[in-house]
């Protein structure tokens, strides 16, 4: 992909992020951090490429290390977000 198209995606995504995050209710700012944490572990993609590739043993092991770190975050991040979100309840209507 050309640099300019990647840059376009990046800039557009920053704007999307700006508007989407302002619409997040302040009560959910902690879950927001937990879930952004989880999704930023999409860096696992790079880790998997490194771990899967043949050619450099040290690169592979670094990649595997990154896979471990990122998957702690993926599982931990989504699980803890789900746990928090499950606690937010409305007043029971009687």
């Amino acid at each position: 992909m050309e640099f300019i198209s990647i840059l376009s995606i990046f800039v557009m995504a920053c704007f999307v992020g700006y508007y989407v995050v302002w619409s997040v209710t302040p009560a959910l700012h902690t879950p927001l951090m937990a879930v952004t944490n989880a999704i930023s572990s999409v860096i696992v993609v790079g880790a998997l490429i490194a771990a899967a590739a043949s050619g450099s043993a040290s690169s592979k092991w670094l990649g595997l290390g990154a896979v471990v770190l990122a998957s702690v975050n993926i599982f931990g991040g989504f699980a803890v977000t789900a746990r928090m979100l499950a606690m937010y309840k409305k007043k029971e209507k009687k």
């Binding site: 995606i9 990046f10 995504a13 995050v21 951090m33 952004t36 999704i39």
Partner: peptide
């Protein structure tokens, strides 16, 4: 793209 979009989202957040 997945990493770029996510990175931008998390960064702005």
């Amino acid at each position: 793209t997945a990493m770029i979009i996510t990175g931008a989202l998390v960064g702005s957040s």
